[in-house]
Design a protein around this nucleic acid. Structure first.
Lengths: 188, 188
DNA sequence: GTTTATATTGAGCATACATTCAATGAACGC
DNA sequence: GCGTTCATTGAATGTATGCTCAATATAAAC
């Protein structure tokens, strides 16, 4: 038992280290050796824990697909309140830099051209937009959000957030924006 | 003379092809061979026109630094009107996919970790934020924009736009957003 | 205490690509 | 026409790096 737990912990350590490095330097510029060194093990041992660099990325993306985007919001909370709370949470993480934040940036990174196909597909299947579309439609019915194509609005919402998160990742002195600014893109 | 003109034209063709490929597949996954093939020349000849792949990228980034971000807006036009017009223009390009749009996406790409250092530095020096900060401060004085740290607001504006542009680049069926949505992030 | 399974290492293999180069062809100057 | 310069090619080179592997240490099982 201890053996298996040990292995699982080690895997987790590798994953977290890789996540940080992938976000800091980008996937392509993070060498297996870099990760191994950062974790404190030999290059070869990496392949005892993960079959390949891509498999390592894939594992991370799998974790990412279960993140904030996949949650289905409670119907009783007003859409604007829900989204504001969500943004507050996310920006709070951005300051403290835990893995949730890095994961957010990685998921954005992975969707872009030039990333391993399988990881790309997987991250694309983690559809954060659909729940937001529903939320926006509800907001429109309730008269809090302006009219317009809900899907485009949802995409714009996420795209903006992604841009902002990435900026926060690169530019550590940037102040966290007021969630209300972003919500006003949707508000009437 | 014709000789030099010919060479210049060829260089331009290479640059435009490379720009498209860099945006479509990402810098690292675009091989020199791919560009050569797309232009219709041998691999070796590429190095007659550009010293290296990085030099090719650098040349593109140099062009990019002279783009829309570097223009200093006219003081007589109201800030919200100016930004709305700017966004309209940019989104119009997005539909027609000419090099201006691709350039926008490339400049964002280049600023990220994992890109050649020199290109990164150069693109970082092309400061689109400062003019926008001024514009936002003017808007705040005039009472059209809400209060708040103007620099953060400007960064958020550009970051959002970047996120949206990248989404437009990846997702060709996406509808163009209403510029007013983005401006309302700033509006009172 | 012996056997078996797992952990760990670092040197070496294989591959993918940017880059070079010797050789050839085409155009231009005179 | 003829030599000089530029254009062009594709094969060869060098390098970076993901990954394999034989060897060894360490722990588990009995």
């Amino acid at each position: 038992m201890t053996r298996k737990e040990q292995k699982e912990e080690r895997r987790q350590a590798i994953l977290m280290t890789a996540l940080t490095l992938f976000v800091e330097r980008g996937y392509h510029d993070t060498k297996i050796t870099d990760i191994a060194e950062a974790v404190g093990m030999s290059t070869g041992l990496m392949f005892h824990y993960f079959a390949s660099k891509e498999e390592l990325l894939l594992e991370l993306v799998r974790m990412g697909t279960m993140g904030p985007g996949s949650v289905n919001p409670d119907d009783r909370i007003p859409p604007d309140v829900y989204l504001t709370e969500f943004l507050k949470q996310v920006f709070k993480y951005a300051k403290e830099q835990p893995w949730v934040f890095n994961m957010f940036v990685l998921m954005a990174q992975v969707r872009r051209p030039g990333m391993p196909e399988e990881a790309r597909k997987l991250s694309a299947s983690a559809d954060a937009v659909s729940p937001t579309v529903k939320l926006i439609k509800r907001g429109q019915r309730d008269g809090i959000f302006h009219e317009g194509d809900a899907k485009t609005m949802a995409i714009v919402f996420w795209a903006s957030l992604q841009g902002i998160m990435e900026e926060l990742a690169m530019n550590k002195d940037m102040k966290t924006p007021d969630p209300e600014w972003i919500i006003s893109m949707l508000r009437k």
